[in-house]
Design a protein around this nucleic acid. Structure first.
Lengths: 141, 141
DNA sequence: TATTGTTATACTCTATAACTATA
DNA sequence: TATAGTTATAGAGTATAACAATA
């Protein structure tokens, strides 16, 4: 069971990496994009803290996204130290693409299961997650 | 589903890392130890190829295990280029420990499930694995 | 000439800590 | 003095390719 879960998890997350990779993103870039999309105008630090990414790494991620024209750093209205992050139009579009591709991948994963089986599987996985003490921690895409 | 599986797989493999870490091993060291235990006297290259580890990395893994007294390089009887890998007594003991701890971890993972549920879960996971084309490839611990 | 194991090197990734500009 | 963001730097990990011994 441990081996199977670990193997499946690895396969799925690397497949996810390939999927968003087709859009020129790594999973972490997608995570940043999604966080900004969820609440436009957050500071770099707020997003970094939310995603548990060290500030120096955050800089390079935002650099990358800004260079691709998906994200913009804008000055904060009152605090000139902070930069507010905003999706560009293209950023919103790419984020939508990525979410769409994720959903397609989700459907592919569940393609061999009936909806009752899918629910059953999710329930059993939830039980395992609870058993090993993994419930509401660790938000990683 | 994709997120859940990826999260669970990650949690389980890092927990496994902690478990074997208590014996001074990393998962890859355990994999080498287990491969040698399964067929004593294999060449470094044979094990490296089996585990999909590049030769140069294999050297450092075997160095580490030899330094810990768990493994021995011995000359091949006819081909003086190759080194045969053998478990030491302590190596066999530590391997046994590691396997025992793995089994305990397996039981912990399944602790919240009845045996029928465990079978059901394994079957459903097998269906998902088959759906995404993951069956007999990729032997990673 | 090909192969086994080794070493050297270069590369990527990441985090720590110094630095700047503001507060 | 403390904080947001940046840059510089050092460390681990890994793979590529040169190398030595042997086949």
């Amino acid at each position: 069971m441990g081996f199977t879960l670990s193997q499946l998890g690895f396969a799925i997350s690397s497949r996810f990496g390939q999927v968003v990779g087709a859009l020129g993103l790594e999973p972490r870039h997608f995570a940043v994009l999604r966080a900004v999309g969820a609440a436009d105008g957050q500071s770099q630090q707020a997003v970094a803290e939310w995603l548990q990414i060290p500030p120096s790494t955050m800089v390079s991620l935002v650099d990358h996204l800004e260079k691709q024209g998906l994200l913009q750093r804008r000055p904060h209205s009152t605090d000139r130290r902070t930069r507010q992050l905003h999706l560009t139009g293209r950023g919103a579009q790419v984020l939508g693409e990525a979410i769409k591709l994720s959903n397609e991948m989700e459907q592919q994963i569940c393609a061999g299961l009936s909806s009752a089986e899918r629910d059953k599987l999710l329930a059993l996985l939830g039980r395992v997650a609870a058993t090993i003490g993994l419930s509401k921690d660790a938000a990683r895409p």
